[in-house]
Write a protein that binds this DNA or RNA. Structure first.
Length: 549
RNA sequence: UGUCCGAUAGUAUAAGGGUAGUACGACAGUUUUUGGUACUGUUUGUCUUGGUUCGAAUCCAGGUCGGACAACCA
């Protein structure tokens, strides 16, 4: 009866390690560099790392990989923390690679003392040339055989600030002929007279990624250091430092990063979109950032579900955006309060309706167990309906309004289209209907049956709102794979603003962070730009549309 | 021309020598006061060539294709 969900390759490794007693406690970490906002690809890594320790016990650290002072900012630290917590995860320890600068410096000295590191005064260009190519070995230079004493002295001077940026660097002495370019005496410390967001001006030398990451993992007793595929070739170096230093042997495992159709994911490109004003900011609802998705109306649950469904493997992948959309529809279908809004209005007059109108009762969510309660919806003689719900010359399987056709007004009556009015340009401006008083929703004794039900808002009671419709940011499946500048492939219609949308009165009480379904139109949420007298809604995603006209 | 990683329906992901399964998508139908939801059905797949084996998606060898690697970035 145990419907065992199959394990991904990392879970298999962990189960084996736990079973064999190699580790008692699983420790993972999520290690972002605080140089940008987190995106859906990071969400995959977050769900993986935190999800693993939730499943197997143990804990996950949040460690900021802040070894490059010129790109990092506290603003990013804060946003990254907010995003992780919003996704629903809590780290055990908040740590920084910069916490380990002293230790790391000590490790470097140890390496020098073992004759495994040297100070190189070559220029960046010389070093690049000497490095060789993937198919040709590198060549050692004259600095490689300096004495330990001289190296120690020079490194001390580097630390003391006696050199300009770029004057020299500290390299590990490994193998200039290695088939792995990273093993050809990698740079481990460089000089940067720059202000660090946490250590201030205490340091002018900073460790490179390869000299900081594995050791930081080791210091924290990380058992499984999970990263993306582009670090595969770094693993040899990762292990080499740990072995030479004789410290806790964290192990690195790599999985394939997430790629999404019609999206770019690299921080560099996302930053470009922000800086060049092509989007409104990191949290533009079209951005694949966590903050963008949040503002768009995605829920943490839907993103976690998405990360669960895409799986973890080592092959390159390109996930269809439709899966993300499925996940948010599935979640919001159960949660979203239903309401009526007319995005593209046209007036409907019920010619035989007498009186001031009436109050109807509507279910807030037929998918919720308690139906989400009910609300009052005012109805009257004149209504706004969706322009696209009327066709002067109906198509084949048209269920909606057309001359002589009948539809039900959601929560209200069945009406029959008797007539319509056109302006001088031939545009329909008004639709005239008659209604059947005995067809009232919930107490219909008319015996009439109709195929179509349309939504509406009473003109007299309608409130107005701005609605922002979003579509994919790019018009090609894989902007990264296209020739030329990726920005040439931006979808010019990715955002459409409707400034005069009619909404039913109940929607005037909408709150930030709540999901709404505008019946027949899609899922929406209030935007942070909204004010009491100017409501702004974002469309999260449309409903699946079964009508193929 | 080197080293490393990978290859299963349109997209992802299982099956770990023994029936190729699941999800999303697409298509069709049932239900429905949302052309939504729910439910049912259909559709399409092991990169290739050999080998081992009673039996191979799985193990072995060659090939093909895709990706990564030559930042004082992470």
């Amino acid at each position: 009866m145990s419907e065992e969900k199959s394990l991904n390759f990392i879970e298999e490794i962990i189960e084996n390690d736990l079973k064999s007693g190699k580790y008692e406690t699983l420790v993972t970490r999520f290690p972002p560099e605080p140089n940008g906002y987190l995106h859906i690809g990071h969400a995959k890594a977050i769900c993986l790392n935190f999800g693993l320790t939730q499943k197997y016990g143990g804990y996950t650290n949040l460690r900021f990989d802040d070894t490059n002072p010129v790109t990092e900012k506290t603003e990013y630290v804060n946003s990254q923390q907010e995003d992780i917590q919003w996704l629903g995860f809590q780290w055990k320890n908040e740590l920084y690679a910069s916490d380990y600068f002293d230790t790391l410096h000590g490790y470097a000295v140890q390496l020098i003392e073992k004759g495994l590191a040297y100070v190189d005064e070559s220029t960046a260009e010389e070093i690049a040339t000497q490095k060789g190519t993937p198919t040709e070995p590198g060549t050692p230079n004259q600095y490689r055989d300096r004495s330990i004493e001289e190296n120690l002295e020079l490194f001390a001077k580097m630390k003391a600030g006696e050199f300009e940026d770029g004057a020299c660097i500290l390299r590990a002495k490994i193998d200039m002929a290695s088939t792995n370019m990273l093993m050809r005496d990698p740079i481990i410390y460089r000089i940067k007279h720059a202000h660090h967001h946490r250590t201030g001006d205490a340091w002018c030398i900073y460790p490179m990624y390869d000299f900081a990451h594995g050791q930081s993992d080791s210091i924290e007793n990380i058992t499984h250091s999970i990263c993306t595929l582009e670090y595969v070739s770094h693993r040899e170096l990762y292990d080499w430092f740990i072995t030479q230093l004789g410290i806790f042997p964290s192990k690195q495992y790599e999985f394939a990063r997430l790629n999404l159709t019609y999206t770019v994911m690299s921080k560099r490109k996302l930053l470009q979109l922000v800086n060049e004003g092509l989007v409104s900011g990191w949290d533009d609802p079209r951005m694949p950032t966590i903050s963008g998705l949040r503002r768009r109306g995605y829920t943490p649950e839907s993103i976690r579900e998405f990360c669960e469904r895409i799986g973890i493997a080592k092959r390159e992948n390109l996930i269809e955006l439709s899966l993300l959309e499925f996940c948010i529809r599935e979640d919001l279908n159960k949660k979203a309060t239903r309401a009526m809004a007319v995005l593209d209005p046209i007036k409907l007059v019920i010619t035989n309706y007498e009186g001031d109108g009436e109050i109807l009762i509507g279910e807030n969510n037929p998918e919720a167990e308690d139906k989400g309660g009910t609300r009052e919806i005012p109805f009257s003689k004149e209504l706004w309906i969706e322009r696209e719900d009327f066709m002067e010359e109906p198509a084949k399987k048209w269920f909606r309004l057309a001359p002589g056709a009948m539809v039900r007004l959601k929560f209200a009556y069945i009406v029959k289209c008797e007539n319509f009015v056109k302006d001088a340009d031939g545009n329909v401006t008004e639709i005239h209907c008659t209604y059947f008083p005995e067809s009232k929703s919930g107490s219909d004794t008319s015996g009439l049956t109709v195929k179509g039900t349309i939504h509406w808002v009473s003109t007299k009671h309608a409130k107005t709102a701005e609605v922002r419709l979003y579509d994919r940011l790019f018009s090609v499946v894989s902007p990264d794979a296209e020739e030329g500048d990726f920005k040439e492939y931006l979808n010019p219609n990715s955002k459409e603003v409707l400034s005069n949308v009619y909404i039913e009165p109940a929607l005037a009480e909408a709150t930030l962070g709540t999901g709404y379904q505008f019946i027949r139109k899609g899922y929406f949420c209030l935007d942070k730009d909204s004010t009491a007298d100017h409501l702004v809604f974002n469309r999260v995603v449309s409903l699946k549309d079964g009508w193929k006209g």
